[in-house]
Structures are given as structure tokens and as C-alpha cells.
Design a protein around this nucleic acid. Structure first.
Lengths: 325, 325
DNA sequence: ATGAAAGCGCTAACAC
DNA sequence: GTGTTAGCGCTTTCAT
């Protein structure tokens, strides 16, 4: 068995309560005693048991992260931002992948509640008002990232997906492209919906015809859709809903013997690690994933500590990155 | 406040112990009573408090994962394998990134111990006998992945890095390449050391001169080293210690106006997601990261449950993937 | 400022 | 087979 607060108390010749007071440095304790306790802690190598603490406090220094899939290259940076910031604030981090399955998502939320996490950062599969209301009943603070519902009682962090996509399409149009195809993301995944709508609006507002196809946020999906598009239509540019799709499209374009950007220009979204490693290097909308994560933790910690009660909806800045595609 | 075991006991007209017995279904309880308790649990929506459970058991259904950096594309698949398998076995997962900093690593290990994790999966920065012995004193089960020290008291999972690299180099030699350069990984990172040694041995055993440079496991490092190599030496093939380095090297080669594999052939190691997305697609040694993760959890869970006491050192199979580079 | 004692929600002897 | 009781290690009234 390991050293407990009782051992320290005995060793320092004080009560458990006093030891507790010095390790939580909130209430004041006699300086001399404090030092004696500190010395005992040092000497015995005492480490407070976080579990016991959590039970007594009915909350823990743990936050939960629930996301679709850490293997999707957009998420590692987000997760890293969350992890760094969490540890900075003294929290540990639980992580689970949902594969966008609402049932699994629900299961993990419950599991984390049983663990009495202090709060949860959720990148949800599907979110509607009803679901949000249910979450609120759980009594655990949530921060919603990327996929959110506006004006909920929860804090949220994201970029302005509509604006980002609109600007990107507008940029292509201004460069003279007219046959711009959109390889969209899945229906009902909020950023995909927003980016699609922005594309449609931008095209129509410039008197151009919109052409798009819904599909997965994956390389394979981008590759396959692009392949079929190339067989049917003559297009001059592609706006992909994310970089993975864009990379897949690039592969299909190369396979067809066409060159990028001379024959077809491609732009993506996210700015994942590989956007700068592709050949040619992918031009894309940079989404500050790391910062979104770090910011989400800040909001959550404030909320846990009760610093703030009004919900905050933060929109971080995106940036268009012009590279070679 | 939420529903506790006491509420359920009262509602079902039994003692807390009985409720505890039914939710842990180990000891036998009267079928009728059992159903009554189950009904009460259902009706009240009772969720056992994992924290209280952990305190009483002095262990938790949580395992910790400590790895260098989730943003490095090799690790997401590993982490995902661990997460899936952990949840399958009823465990939650803590995660922390060390950036290969031994002090941070130590800090996280201690933090997880304070959380009374059931066990820890460690991809360590630096591991020597002394350190391993210290870890053993902690009394928490560890499983070492990828970077390990043989014949320790811990379970380990990895591939045979020496063999994998040796085969890859041999393959190049058999194809007629002679001027094979090795872009190695950092010194003292075990897989990097093994791969480097295998390269050196393979070259010498075939009467060829070994040429290599140590560096980071990063794209940038691969790019820069390759650039300088191209200025000085005439080489015909590159064996990179990982895919990120290989991708960086490919970029430098393209920049120089050379083509792959005609002028220079490149092979990597890991088979990260992007190996199959590059242009040309990267030939590489496939490391079964997901499986390594899933296997590590299995070993750990067995160990936690005391199924096995002798340590196991598992070597999973790698596979050479011939693509276009 | 400090100590004694109750309690957080659960499990595990130990009795019956 | 079931209930009673004593913890697990910590925090937090409530006295002093």
C-alpha cells in the first residue's frame, strides 16, 4: 500500500485535516506547521490519491474528449491542443472515438459521467435541440467544437465555415474559374452543410451553376467521386469540403493524365499536415485546430470553476493558404 | 444529486450489499430479488459511480496511454487500436503526449498513478534498465510498445525493426541499387537505432558502403537532409527511417527536378495514411500500428486481471508494401 | 488555527 | 442468500 494522508499526518504530528489544508492551500495554516507538513510529504514521498479526492468532491480533475476518429488527420492537432491545455490547467484527459455513431457517442457520454468528469468536450455526430437539452440535464458542463448548434446553453468553439468556404469559392471565381465543382462532405455534419451552402450561394450570386456531390470526408470518397466527375463533365476547378477529399481528387486527376493546377485547380479545407506535403502542395483553408482545442479547454475550465455562467460562442479565424494547387 | 446504490436498495427493499452483488454479478443472489433490484435500477436510472468503485477497489477501469505525440501520423492508428480494445474490455482511456521529454513522461506516469489507473501503455522516450526498474517499483502494470528493452519484467509489443529494415535494404540491393543512402531517425530512439544498424549491416554484408545521417523523425528533417545530400553525393536510392522523412526526401528530390523512382528510388517505414496518398505513392514497410495497440491492451488487461505473471514479448509481423516510389 | 468526526458511494468481510 | 458494518483516502463542517 502507498502513503496516505494519514501517514503524513502521523509523521508530522498533526491531524489529517491540517494536511489536507496545506495541500489544498486555500485556508490558512500556521507557517511553522505548514513547513513541517511539507517536509513530511517530501520525506514520505506522499502523492494525494486523486480518486479519493474526486469522491469527496464529487468531481474530478479530468475532462473527457469525445470525437469522431483520431485517425482522421484533422483531429490529432485538435486533440493535442486539448491535451496540452488540459494538463496546463491541471486536468487529465479521457478520449473516445465515436465514428459518428450517435449511440456510441451517447454511451461514452454516460461512461464519462459515471467517471465524474469535470466536463466534456464534444465533437458530436449529430446535434439537434432535443439532444442538446438532454445533455444539459446531465448537469456536466459541455463545450461543443466544430459541430454545434447556435444559441444553445453550451459554450462552443469553431470557425465560420460558411464565410471560409464562401471566400474560397469567391477567390476561384475572381481568378476566372467558372466550372467549379464541389466535392462536399456528408449531409447533416454541420461544417459540411455550411461549406456546401456557401459554395452554392457563392456560385449563384456570381451567376454560375453549382455542381456538387455529397460524400464521405475521406480520401477514397474524394478519389472515386472525382473519377466519375472527370468522366462526365469538363470542369476547371474543384473545391473540396476537406483536405482528404481534395487529396483523393488530386490523385484521380493525376491518374487521368491531367495536371494541377494547369488543367484543374484544387482547393481543400482544414490544412492538415499533409496538405503541405502533397505534390503539388495543396492550397487550402487553414482551420486552427490546435487553437480550437486549447480554447475549448479554457472555456470548459472556466465553466467548471463557475467563473462564468453565460454561454460563449467563439468563432476563431480561418486563413486561406495559397500553395501550388 | 444523482441516484446512488442506497436509493436503489431502499427502492427495492434490500440492502446495499445485495444491490452491489447484482451489479457485479459474481456471487449468487436469489433470482426474484435480483429481478426486483434490476427493475429498481432501471426505474431509477441508476448509474454506478465509477469513482466510488475505484476507491473501494483501489484500482480503476481506466488505462493510461503515454506516447510521444499524437500529431505524428504514426500514432493515431496505434491510439485508435488501444482505444477500441480498451473500451471493448470495459476500460476508459487516459492519454498524454510527452514530446519524448523524459521529465514530462515521468510526470504523466505519476499523475496516472495518482488516478489509480489499472495499467499504463507506454511508448517511452528513453528506456534503460534503471528506469525500467523504477517503473516496476510503482506496482502498476506496464506494457511497452515499439520502444522497449528486452527481457525486462514488462510485457512488450513491437515489430522486428532490425529484420524489417534489413529486408528492405536487401530488397533494394537485389534490385541493383548500390548507392543507397539512409536517412535515419534520432539516436537512442530504439526503432531508429535498430533500423540504422540493420541498414549498416545489410550494406556491409553486401560489400557496399553505408552512408547515413541521423535526424528527426520529421518531414522537415527529411527534406533538409535530402537537399544537402543531393548537393554532395550521387545516390540512386534512399531508405528513410520513417514515412515522414521519406515524404520530405521526396519533396527535395522533386524540387531538384529529379523523378521518383527513375532517378532515385525512395522507401519509407510505417505505412502511415499518407504513404498511399503521395505522388508517387510511397513504397514502405507496413507497421501494424492498430494491431500493436489492440494487442498491448490485451496483454495489459490480462496482466491487470492477474491471468498471467510471466512477461510476454510479442513481435508482430511487418510487411513490405511495394508502391510506386 | 487546529482537531474530531461525519460522509462521499461503493465493496467485502463477517455474521446470520 | 442476505444484511450489517467497517473501511477505501480524502474533504469539510463543527467545535474548540
Amino acid at each position: 500500500m502507498s502513503i496516505t494522508i494519514k501517514d503524513v499526518a502521523k509523521h508530522a504530528g498533526v491531524s489529517k485535516a491540517t494536511v489536507s489544508r496545506v495541500i489544498n492551500h486555500n485556508t490558512s495554516v500556521n507557517k511553522e506547521i505548514k513547513e513541517r507538513v511539507l517536509a513530511s510529504i517530501e520525506e514520505l514521498g506522499y502523492q494525494p490519491n486523486a480518486i479519493a479526492r474526486s469522491l469527496a468532491n464529487s468531481t474530478s480533475n479530468v475532462i473527457g474528449l469525445i470525437l469522431p476518429d483520431i485517425v482522421n488527420p484533422y483531429f490529432p492537432a485538435l486533440a493535442r491542443g486539448i491535451e496540452d491545455s488540459a494538463h496546463e490547467h491541471g486536468y487529465s484527459l479521457f478520449i473516445s472515438n465515436t465514428d459518428n455513431n450517435p449511440d456510441i457517442e451517447q454511451e461514452y457520454i454516460e461512461k464519462m459521467c459515471r467517471q465524474q468528469v469535470g466536463g466534456i468536450i464534444l465533437i458530436s455526430s449529430i446535434l439537434d435541440e432535443e439532444k442538446v437539452n438532454k445533455l444539459a440535464e446531465l448537469g456536466v458542463p459541455f463545450v461543443l467544437c466544430d459541430r454545434l448548434i447556435e444559441n444553445s446553453q453550451f459554450d462552443t468553439v469553431s470557425i465560420d465555415n460558411y464565410k471560409a468556404a464562401y471566400e474560397a469559392v469567391q477567390r476561384l471565381i475572381r481568378q476566372g474559374y467558372e466550372k467549379i465543382y464541389h466535392l462536399s462532405g456528408p449531409k447533416h455534419i454541420q461544417p459540411a452543410d455550411k461549406r456546401r451552402q456557401a459554395y452554392i450561394d457563392a456560385m449563384h450570386e456570381h451567376g454560375l451553376e453549382s455542381m456538387y456531390q455529397v460524400g464521405d470526408f475521406s480520401y477514397k470518397s474524394g478519389y472515386e467521386r472525382m473519377k466519375s466527375v472527370l468522366e462526365k463533365s469538363k470542369i476547371s476547378a474543384v473545391f473540396a469540403a476537406n483536405d482528404l477529399i481534395a487529396l483523393g481528387a488530386m490523385s484521380a486527376i493525376h491518374e487521368k493524365g491531367l495536371t494541377i493546377p494547369n488543367d484543374i485547380s484544387v482547393i481543400g479545407c482544414d490544412d492538415i499536415l499533409f496538405a503541405q506535403m502533397s505534390n503539388p502542395k495543396l492550397s487550402t483553408i487553414s482551420v486552427p485546430a490546435y487553437k480550437i482545442g486549447a480554447t475549448a479547454v479554457k472555456l470548459l475550465v472556466d465553466r467548471i470553476k463557475g467563473v462564468r455562467s453565460k454561454s460563449k460562442n467563439l468563432i476563431l479565424n480561418h486563413k486561406f493558404i495559397e500553395r501550388e494547387s
